[in-house]
Design a binder for these strands. Sequence first.
DNA 1: GCGACAG
DNA 2: ATCTTGTCGC
Length: 265
Amino acid sequence: MRQVNPEFAPRAGLSRAEMESLQRRVAERAVFEDDLGFDPASVSLGTPKNATLSGGTDVPLVAGIDQSFLDDRALSAVVVLRGDEVVERVHAVTELDLPYIPGLLSFREGGPILDALAKLEHDPDLLVFDGSGRIHFRQAGLATHLGVICDVPSIGVAKSLLCGTPDEAVDGRPEGWHTPIRADGDVDSVGGHSATAETTLGYAFQSRQYDSRPIVNPLYVSPGHRVAAETAVHLVSNLSGGYKLPEPTRLADAYADEAKAQYED
DNA sequence: GCGACAG
DNA sequence: ATCTTGTCGC
């Protein structure tokens, strides 16, 4: 798929200040409102195998993206779904030039992910990333950064909270429960995007819970680009199928491990 | 100086 | 993220 805004692509050799500055420019360009180009209700698993809805529009293509690692190389995996059907899987192995630094994840994994996305024959209507979108110090997490570069609607699904504060305690909640993640002092207001105590950056969302002991932590869902926080949770809910992680992410995760085996000596 | 932090 | 055995439950 094509990079509509390549000027935001993470380049190697930037200073920390330059990376943070680029993130602010990304956040200014990001749209945290619905501009999907498709009906969110048409995104679901268990959609009939036919590729067309009653209205004549195509069922949206949803891509799940995840990484695995081999020494100092990243393996980025992308799985594209139409309903519950896998229509394409691609992966790329890329040298890493940065360590993991909280807040700068897109500079470590962004390049590898773009390499994988470039191999796609199908153009996804929605990108689902493993990590944060707007829930980020400069409101430009991985999902936002890559969503803006591709100018495709995107969502961030993280397994832990980078910053911000949940409205309510998140422990032991039932499936389907969700509560806003509000901006706090760690979050900067950027461009037209405020970061007051009322600003909803995303949601904690309980996708799965068991009747028994081990309490499952919620997911932290946030808008990447061209989607509202409320819609992002709705979409992730629609993409959930019996497991904690939404299906696109779960399949990309499994594919990243599967493909990794082919490169291990 | 202290705290706190996606993958 | 990654390193890893057993164990509990549907």
